[in-house]
């Protein structure tokens, strides 16, 4: 009896082993584990997750698994799971920049290539293969460059920051603060939309500036929602803006509604923050030319002159209100 059982066991184990191996072989797909934030985190993330889904599909030769969560420890657990599963590549956009050292090391030990996207992690560069990020400082520089190129006599700018201390706020503010220090422009009001990059707060910042009788001709809002709030304040106060108007408006993030507003001349410019890193990463994997260290994406700034329907369709994120529709 005992013997028979033993034989049966062996058979089962062998059988499943064979089956398993067959499964592995048959697919021939590149195994990718993606650890990301959930789409409801922001419009940016929604586009980002969608892009990951599109690019790392079976049709493109990938066997990709995703975990999207805001909880750093859940993210780490998921990453460890993928390492155990023996993925070929591990793609991470971390909820929290710290606490990842062990996980990254064990991936490295298992021979898995780790690619960070969108968000950097505080760790030794040797712990991951490559990181593809948006360069917030670069975005700021490009935006300020545009402001300086407007040919205004004197630039009186209202700065509306995002969540204080966030990477985006620090990067996008730096260029403005530097330019002000260098005397190239004058910051007449310095405010923030707070932790939720709030439209209403941004509106209040501008309303306060108007109430104080500040003379200004540029509003530099660090995301599209806050730019929207700022413009609402101008509208209510009867101050002209956009193409041919008194106050020049620039937002960030490339929401399609923002781009349509630029297209309609309601705003003046928008600076991209590109959520679509997947194609670039896929190119690295497929070509075998894996870079190392941090790689910054090229990002666009579109103005009333340079904007086009194709660019809006291709690079925009979030809902498209349609051509000619202004989002107040």
């Amino acid at each position: 009896m005992k013997k028979a059982l033993g034989v049966l066991m062996i058979l089962v184990i062998l059988g499943s082993g064979v089956l398993f191996a067959a499964g592995q072989k048959e697919s021939g797909l590149i195994k990718v584990g993606i650890v990301n934030l959930p789409p409801e985190e922001s419009g940016y993330r929604q586009a980002n997750v969608e892009d990951m889904n599109n690019v790392f599909s079976v049709a493109n030769g990938y066997d990709a698994k995703q975990t999207n969560t805001l909880d750093n420890s859940e993210q780490i657990a998921a990453a460890k799971g993928y390492i155990r599963d023996g993925v070929d590549y591990l793609l991470i956009s971390a909820a929290n920049a710290s606490g990842w050292d062990d996980t990254l090391k064990s991936a490295k030990d298992a021979g898995i290539q780790v690619i960070l996207f969108d968000r950097a992690i505080d760790t030794n560069e040797s712990n991951y293969q490559a990181a593809i990020l948006s360069d917030m400082a670069y975005e700021g520089e490009k935006a300020v460059e545009w402001v300086l190129s407007l040919g205004l006599d004197k630039i009186n700018l209202i700065l509306i920051r995002g969540q204080m201390g966030s990477a985006a706020e620090i990067g996008r503010s730096a260029a403005v603060l530097d330019a002000a220090k260098a005397g190239k422009l004058n910051i007449v009001a310095d405010g923030t939309g707070g932790d939720s990059w709030s439209l209403e707060e941004a509106r209040k910042v501008v309303e306060a500036a108007i109430a104080a009788g500040k003379d200004f001709n540029v509003i530099y809002a660090q995301n599209d929602g806050m730019a929207q709030g700022a413009v609402q304040a101008l509208q209510a106060a009867g101050i002209s803006h956009g193409k041919g108007g008194k106050v020049k408006i620039i937002g960030f993030d490339f929401n399609r509604f923002a781009l349509r507003n630029v297209q309609a001349g309601y705003w003046d410019a928008d600076m991209q923050c590109n959520p679509r890193q997947a194609a670039e990463i896929s190119k690295w994997i497929k070509s075998g030319k894996m870079p190392s260290g941090v790689v910054y994406q090229e990002e666009l700034l579109l103005t009333t002159e340079t904007i086009s329907d194709e660019l809006i369709a291709k690079w925009g994120i979030n809902a498209d209100p349609g051509k000619g529709v202004i989002t107040r």
Partner: peptide
Amino acid sequence: FMIDGKLSPILANDISNQIGT
């Protein structure tokens, strides 16, 4: 977010405009 169809829908009609302003 699900009700929104995973997007930020735009409410750009005149009446909404007037209610908001």
